[in-house]
Structure formats: structure tokens, C-alpha cells
Write a protein that binds this DNA or RNA. Sequence first.
DNA 1: TGATTCATTGAATATTCATTCAATAATTTA
DNA 2: TAAATTATTGAATGAATATTCAATGAATCA
Lengths: 191, 191
Amino acid sequence: MPTRKEQKEKRKQDILYAALELFVSKGYAATKITDIAKRVNMSVGLLFHYFESKEKLYEELVRMGLEGTAYPVEQSYDHAIDFFAQFTTQLFLYMRQQPVMAKLFVLMAEAQRSEATPEHIREIAIQVNTIEQFVPIVQWGQREGTIREGDPPVISNAFWCSIQGIMEQYATNQAIDLPEADWIVDIVRRR
Amino acid sequence: MPTRKEQKEKRKQDILYAALELFVSKGYAATKITDIAKRVNMSVGLLFHYFESKEKLYEELVRMGLEGTAYPVEQSYDHAIDFFAQFTTQLFLYMRQQPVMAKLFVLMAEAQRSEATPEHIREIAIQVNTIEQFVPIVQWGQREGTIREGDPPVISNAFWCSIQGIMEQYATNQAIDLPEADWIVDIVRRR
DNA sequence: TGATTCATTGAATATTCATTCAATAATTTA
DNA sequence: TAAATTATTGAATGAATATTCAATGAATCA
């Protein structure tokens, strides 16, 4: 029999998960507290017993996303292209194993991009990896010949935005499988 | 000197454009009528003189998107891969020339995906091209050897989602240029 | 010009929704 | 077991926001 503390923790997780699903499928602003409460079979009053506001709930999810999606970039590779291959493979593997992470990934992306995001929450969301970190790797790859020619930020951006677009779809519907990592890596690979 | 009718039409366009920008940068739900009114220097009352509701405004934008983003798929190509190359090139060209279309593109995507979209609006948005139309072309290309092996819907999806992710970014920031069409076509191209 | 229609305003109203609260039930503690 | 603490409810409150409206000014018409 679970202790009260455990129960409370579980309940909190349930709320977070329900909110995450709704925030991803409808957007933060369009999600009503009653939607969340309904999904976890709970009165609105009780929900506020667990989280002091809708915004705090959002903030907590974004914090979770910050931890959960901090991909390890540290490691040495023979070639720049190996980094992209490894990175993408790992990411897709991770998302397939834990679709909840795909949802968190999308939540983070929206929190970063949307101008409706409360400033202090956006600041948290911005701390995750962005295209900037890919730029030097693209440059390295161009020097050694494994990455295609072109403006490094534009290449990095194309790669990262593609990943984001793919995640956005996968987060709400895992019926269509993620692509092979190589297909996406081919965006940056020199032919 | 413009006639009153012309003035009215121009004003209506201004409102539509301001709403489009806001809907894309903050999302439909988070955009307030006062935000839109402010952006076009107009009282809220007057805005309602032009559009009977926020939802009707949204609906009209989605209708515009339906017309504006109906890409011509009809045409004959020697190879399936040529279709993808042509399609992507044309799309990027179009979006570069008229960034407003990139915004409309993203609005449509969100209207289709979000569960917060009013049903009758979603029905309109759904009429645009989706991955389904790429599937037979992928199959054709696999038979003739120009498209890579793999589940056709998964390949189509990867391609289309990448395009969407790229547009999503470009719609709000044209400072980072769109990639070369070929880079994205390489997602589906057989090596 | 005088009458009529259209444009415009912003305060008033209505609606939707987050948040609070007082009351009750369940659980834990001593 | 009795007191204290925690969980739970849903109706009441309040804030934010969409929508209406009565009044005024500007443009058009006859």
C-alpha cells in the first residue's frame, strides 16, 4: 500500500503528464484547467492543491524538458558527419523508447518560439541546445569534406528544423514511425 | 484618391495581415483582439465592424491559405525524384518571394494539427495537400530506383514534416535563409 | 445644401476561465 | 479512540477578454 507521500507524488505526475499532452495537442493558451482536471478525474480545486497556477505547471514541465532533453554533445568523433549520425540515431532511439520525451521536446520548442510564453519560462526553455552548437561542427565537417558546402548556419538550421518538424508530428501520433536517422543526416552529408 | 470601398478593402487586408502575424507568432488562442486592433491602430469596436468575430477572422485566413497554398502537383516528370525536386524548389522560391505565404503555410499547419481548432475551420484546413499525395510518387520512385528504400508513408512523412519544420522557422524569421531545395530532397533521394 | 449612409470610438456588457474558499471526508498521529 | 492533518469537492469570486452599443464625426448622395 502506497504511503500518502507516494500517492501525492504519483498524482502530481499524472497531472503533469495530462497537462503535457494537452499543451502539446492544443497549445498552452488553449488548454483549460478544467480540461486537465477532467483528464485526471479530479476537481479543479484539487488540482490547485497540487500546483499553485497553470503557469507554474507549465514552468515545471519546461524544467523537466530542460533536464530530459539535454543531449550529450561531449564525445569525440572521427568525422563531423559521425556526430550528426550519432546524435540523430540517439535522439530517435530515445524518442521511440519514451514517446513522452517527444512531447516534452515539442513543448520546449513551442515555449522557445512562441511570443506568448511568459518571459521567465522562455528563459528556462532557451537554455537547451539550439542550432548554434551545430555550426562549428558543420564548419569542421566542411573542412574535412564530410559535410556539404553552404552557409553553416543555414545548414545547421535546415537540419535542426527538420528534426523539430518530425518531432512535432511524432509527438502527437506515433502511428507513423520516425524515419531512419540516416535519411535526415543526408540533409548535411556531402554527396 | 481611393474610394471608400477601396479603403475598406485595404483596411480589411491590414487586419488580416496583422492577425496572421500574431496568430503565427503567439498562436490563435493567445492572440487577443486588442492585440490585433493595436497593431493596426484601430479601436476594437471598429475591428468588429470588419469581422464579426475572432473566429471568422481566423476562418478567412484559413480560406486564404487554402487557395494560396494549393500547389500544382499536376505535371509530368521523367522521374519521381524530379517531382520532389521541382516541388521543393518551387515552394521555396514562392516562400522567399512572398514571406506572407510562409506565415499562411504555418497557420494552415497549425489549424490542421491543433485540437483547439474549431471543427469547421479544421475541415477547411484539411483540404490542403498532405503526405498522402506523396505516397504514390514515392512508390513510383522506388520502382524506378530514384527514391530510397523504406516504408513509403514513413518516407513521405519525413519529407513533409521537414518542410513544415523549416517553414515554421522561416515564417517568423527570414534572417536565416531557407536551405537549398536539394538538401531537403536528399531525404528521399536514393544514394 | 440637407439628408443619408458609413466610419469610428471606447465604455458597457457578456462570457469564459483561472483561482479561491468553506465545507466535508479520509487518513494519520498521539 | 480523539485530535490533527491532509485530500477532496464544486460553487463563488474575480480577472481577463470577446462582443455590443449608443453616440459622434466624416463622407457620399440627391
